[in-house]
Design a protein around this nucleic acid. Structure first.
Lengths: 143, 143
DNA sequence: TATAATTGAATTGTACACAATCTATTTTGA
DNA sequence: TCAAAATAGATTGTGTACAATTCAATTATA
């Protein structure tokens, strides 16, 4: 008869491998991110600004699934580094608008190699990558 | 011609969906973990102790991919809650051995429902779950 | 139209995560 | 055998995450 605690084993969980793989990949990123002097969180924030050029904290939070409690200090750090600017919207002073500085824009060219370098580390088949992508998107929709 | 910055878009990354899904699932866990008064990290630590009954910090770190900098404070918290005991090994005083208290053992019966409750939230097909599990394990091996 | 409700960020407090360093204990090897 | 190397945890410092609260600006409504 099956152990009634079987479900409590780490190996049988779905969440734990996700949690562990996610953390380990971020750790693998570190040497490449060090080259551009960004943490992983700072990197994904920059990815949003690189793509949009002009974003409110609210919009950014929706894209990254992060709230102002996390974003405010990260954005202040990136501003101190001279990569972005934070200004209140004139139409609605509640909105804080994030824009790229020339220095932030320049960094985009240095960052462009990072995804490929990471891919090289991962050693995952294109099929697996595609499949994983699809499943993760499906999960995200249900959440 | 394709945008040379295409690779820098969040949607085209593999790491970001992993990071986001992992965080969102942990957040979904929260109401169920609140019922047993554990955080997610405390929960996975307890899962190791429930399975092994007697583990060193080193072994636990290997299973959870966490170092002593993370585990030491978590273990101290769990000790304060009366769920575990921390004692130095007599054979080798460098090793700290974690064991279950009766109260910690009793909690296992309350926790046994959590994985099923979570599964109910997730709404993922058994096929997807299996496939995801396999891919994540394959990635973990290459890391 | 004044006030209440809502909204978007910032702040506060708690809890990880992890690199780097430190300390005590054990093991090695000249 | 005894000093050097290795090992296991603890500590320190930085940077997220996130819930809960606060605050200022805007919108809705009685």
């Amino acid at each position: 008869m099956a152990d009634k605690y079987q479900c409590l084993k780490l190996d049988n969980q779905l969440c734990f491998p996700l949690y562990a793989v996610s953390k380990e990949i971020v750790r693998k990123y570190k040497p490449f991110l060090d080259e551009v002097d960004l943490t992983y969180t700072q990197y994904i924030v920059m990815m949003v600004v690189w793509e949009d050029e002009k974003v409110s904290v609210k919009e950014m939070g929706k894209k990254l699934f992060l709230d102002s409690g996390t974003l405010t200090p990260v954005l202040k750090t990136l501003e101190k580094k001279g990569l972005i600017e934070r200004t209140r919207s004139k139409e609605d002073e509640r909105n804080l608008i994030v824009t790229l500085t020339p220095s932030g824009k320049a960094l985009k060219d240095k960052a462009v190699d990072i995804p490929a370098k990471m891919g090289g580390c991962l050693n995952i088949s294109p099929d697996d990558a595609m499949e994983l992508h699809i499943i993760l998107h499906r999960i995200m929709e249900t959440l």
